[in-house]
Nucleic acid binder design. Structure first.
Lengths: 131, 131
DNA sequence: CATGCAAATGTAATAGTATTACACTGGATG
DNA sequence: CATCCAGTGTAATACTATTACATTTGCATG
């Protein structure tokens, strides 16, 4: 929780909800959890998520419209991340390998594409669930 | 259009809409285009898209909730694909490099993860738009 | 201390994306 | 003929995200 101190009230509520969940949650699931804390509208969640993503504390999983606390908080410096998402149990693993980034960067460089954000998501079944 | 012959009426309508578009379309955009052809409900589009994806004729772009005709139709055999999506002009490039697949497969293998579907999407600005 | 600005917040309304449920058709197969 | 199954039609609903506008808070600065 390196940067947690900088967070505003809403931001830290959303962040700890995600951390406690130990897995991905949708924005509306977060909203439901936080209704007790006074949250009333989706925007409150989306706004907090946006800031948290900027700080690298939270990642968005595009392929399932969900959000997950970063496994390595304060990692805003790390580059391209890949996620392995189990469609059965919902568990998410972060794969932070520069090895993956390299061939992608080779393409963007030679095609003069200015990459801003890269999503790599492997969907399937994790070791526990695949049998 | 290798396999186009196998397609049902709705499927080929959706497929040619996507082909003609020359870029990604949302399901509802497709629906709007096809209202003249008798389409009335989103489900008609989603069902066709599902079949087209199974056949590898269409890809889904997870990060923008859109669909695009495969650049290399009939390519259902090809493995992991990466997409470069220009957020400015909307143009999409397919990057089909086994080089990318390799490090990912290394991870899934050593973690015994059974990959079913992999999304790799680079968002940014293409050569044309980046200036 | 007062002022003013920027960031954060609260709320409502709406837009955009996707699925569930149920009914029906038509062709292939036994 | 009976049955099965893939495809289709339609309506209703669920889920995800954004726009617009009003208000508040923190804080630097005069």
């Amino acid at each position: 929780m390196k940067q947690a101190a900088n967070l505003t009230k809403n931001q830290s509520l959303v962040y700890s909800t995600l951390s406690d969940a130990g897995g991905p949650l949708s924005a509306y699931s977060i909203l439901d959890v936080l209704r007790d804390e006074g949250f009333r509208a989706p925007l409150q969640v989306y706004r907090a998520l946006e800031k948290l993503q900027e700080q690298g504390l939270v990642h968005r999983l595009e392929s399932i419209n969900a959000f997950v606390a970063c496994a390595d908080p304060g990692c805003s410096g790390h580059g391209t991340i890949a996620f392995a998402i189990c469609d059965t149990c919902g568990q998410v693993d972060e794969i932070s390998r520069t090895a993956i980034e390299k061939p992608l960067r080779a393409w963007t460089t030679s095609n003069e594409f200015e990459a801003e954000k890269t999503a790599i998501e492997i969907r399937g079944k994790c070791r526990e669930c695949k049998d």
